[in-house]
């Protein structure tokens, strides 16, 4: 209903315009005089542009105004055409007396007419063309709408893909970083267990980070796994439990797994 009301106003406006067009010498008067101000924003715009016109440029401006009106009229016609087309979608209801009378003649709802019931089930549809686009080419306006729709859809999809991509990239980045951190930790633990000196002075942390970044590509999950397995096999140590087990059996029994995720 709300939609309807909107259309009503626009059409009312048009009706007024038509009266002007038919009627009188409105062209020779200033457009504001013959066209009382209307709520439409477009109207006020045109009014403004016309208000600033100088008498010299009157003719050119007048053409603009006509052009503008023509465009507006076209837009309204498109709106009306769409409305008409939408209405042609709704079939005649079963409550209609014509429906009942045809049924009385032996019509089965949903079927077609004719000796062998070979007729059309639906009336020939309306096709409204308001352009001079050739056969095989769509109405440029429809085409534009379709293109815009397709573009919007594409954009939406792209964004979604981008978001997903971004998410997964972040996740894998985080994972990679974890691998590096764990590798470092495991390496330190191994060094300790092998009674090597810990060579990680606090000072060089920044440096190390840089190194880490550089190394990032080199240190893979496999490297991590290798070192973890070495810790486990040789020292019965699990990095994630943070504990050196008494025996291999104890390790297997108490440690939930080799992975960080298992813990």
């Amino acid at each position: 209903m709300a939609e309807f009301a909107k259309n009503q106003t626009t059409n009312g406006e048009q009706e007024d315009e038509e009266d002007d067009y038919m009627g009188d010498l409105s062209q020779f008067l200033s457009p504001e005089a013959s066209n009382p101000p209307k709520p439409s924003s477009k109207k006020t715009l045109s009014g403004k542009s016309l208000a600033v016109q100088s008498s010299k440029k009157k003719k050119a401006k007048f053409l603009n105004w006509q052009e503008h009106r023509k465009q507006e009229r076209e837009l309204k016609q498109i709106e009306e055409d769409e409305q008409t087309l939408a209405k042609t979608e709704a079939p005649i209801p079963q409550s209609n007396i014509g429906f009942k009378l045809l049924k009385r003649m032996g019509y089965t709802p949903g079927s077609a007419l004719g000796k062998e019931g070979s007729g059309r089930a639906e009336p020939v549809g309306l096709e409204i063309r308001r352009s001079r686009a050739g056969i095989g080419r769509e109405d440029p306006r429809k085409e534009k709408i379709r293109r815009e729709e397709a573009e919007a859809e594409m954009k939406r999809r792209n964004e979604k893909a981008l978001m997903e991509d971004f998410g997964s990239r972040q996740k894998s980045q985080w994972r990679n970083r974890r691998v590096v951190v764990n590798f470092e930790k495991a390496k330190a633990a191994l060094d300790q267990l092998e009674n090597r000196e810990v060579l990680v002075p606090k000072k060089s942390e920044d440096e190390e980070e840089v190194e880490e970044e550089e190394e990032e590509e080199e240190i893979t999950a496999e490297d991590l796994l290798e070192i973890l397995m070495k810790l486990r096999d040789e020292h019965r140590y699990c990095l994630f439990c943070g504990f050196q087990y008494e025996s291999m059996e104890a390790l297997l029994a108490n440690c939930p797994g080799t992975d960080e995720d298992d813990h």
Partner: peptide, 8 residues
């Protein structure tokens, strides 16, 4: 044969 709705 015409569409049923036209006859209706």
């Amino acid at each position: 044969p015409p569409a049923p709705e036209t006859l209706m």
